[in-house]
Nucleic acid binder design. Sequence first.
DNA 1: CGTGAGCTTGACTAGGTTCAAACGGGGTGG
DNA 2: CCACCCCGTTTGAACCTAGTCAAGCTCACG
Lengths: 231, 231
Amino acid sequence: MGLVCQQCLARNSALCSAMIGDEIDDLFSIAHQVKVDEGGYLLHEEDPSKYVYNLSSGVCTLERLASDGSRQIMAFVYPGDFIGINPGPFYSVSAQALAPIVACRWHMKDLEGLYSAYPNLEQHVHGIASRVLAATMDQLFVLGRKNAVEKIAYFLLYIDGRQRKFDGHSDSFVLPMTRIDIADYLGVAVETVSRAFSQLRRRGLIELSQAWVVTLKDREGLREVVEHTVG
Amino acid sequence: MGLVCQQCLARNSALCSAMIGDEIDDLFSIAHQVKVDEGGYLLHEEDPSKYVYNLSSGVCTLERLASDGSRQIMAFVYPGDFIGINPGPFYSVSAQALAPIVACRWHMKDLEGLYSAYPNLEQHVHGIASRVLAATMDQLFVLGRKNAVEKIAYFLLYIDGRQRKFDGHSDSFVLPMTRIDIADYLGVAVETVSRAFSQLRRRGLIELSQAWVVTLKDREGLREVVEHTVG
DNA sequence: CGTGAGCTTGACTAGGTTCAAACGGGGTGG
DNA sequence: CCACCCCGTTTGAACCTAGTCAAGCTCACG
């Protein structure tokens, strides 16, 4: 019985949750555990996409680097999230660890081999892929149509939603990423991120006991900010 | 033998090309043709996603509307492209016709029913979905990290790539979308789009015989513009 | 207790938005 | 057939948001 899996933070992820009871052993038996130190890369955008990963612990970014050095973060990846599920010859993003990470790795081929035994596994994989697209479109909308403060408000609510399941039900959470990461995620400058945080704090919508410890004082107010309701 | 299909602009699309010879009849027999006038909507973002569409002719946008009236165009859809392949309870984008369109419509259920008979059909569907994600990530990168002129240069090369297969091998193409559409795609103001066009024309990179007839005079130069190589 | 990386704040600048006006081309009605 | 009108586009000028550059601050760590 896959004890390792039963205790995994990602046990209820979209993929692993498709396997009930001892079935998980089938999935585990073809998995490899990989670890990456903080700042290290799990994979690079130009790597051939042989493997699929499911993050067990830690946080990482999916990012793309331009020739001029500028960086765009496409997503923040939390335990239970997948990396590399999208078919194609190469991952088209790199995955960098914001904290030490542990991930389960499968050969794409091996995983596909399980499809016949577990028919809903394939659907699950594609359901995951489509949720990634939905999130990316949300981000696209925000980058295209929102100003700096609105972007930060969106970001905070987004992170709150992502982390609540790990951080418990408190209104505070610890940001695993730096201001630079946030800036590269939202397509603005670091200083702009900092100023937007300060403005939201001054407005009483958030509290910052430390730079990376955020308390949402007024979720509804933040939502209004995102919605452009200048109020 | 599916004559309608054999002559369709989308015959070689990722989905229909999975069916060779008479197999296409199976796909056609469960399809409905739908037509939408210019400016009309094929589907709305809040509609339950019962159907999948394959565009046969015309062009349309995938867009999202904010409460404050601002619009973000997520993609331009050309013949052979799919709409609504991503699982989820609702389409999360609306599809608006830029020109009169004809599309094949399938019940998602019916299409899934063919999966057992044509195993590679399912893969094809998901291959499509993943290419959509790749394109969306490209756009995300451009919106986040490029200035106005770079965005327009990217857009022109992108459209060139999309339309070349329909417009033949000339260097000119006719834009099916307005400047407003372009602005809403790139997250800038209409005037900014116009100014960027003019600048590229003055620099000799493009030619505009009419506002919507573009000739790429220097593709390599445009690529350099996109790559931020300020030169 | 000193150091340095990351964060904040200030002053200035630049690029893009906004508002306003002029232009152009296609379609309509006289 | 021509004149007019309208919509989409272009251009100009003022404004403003966010970027840039630079300095000071905070806090974790050695």
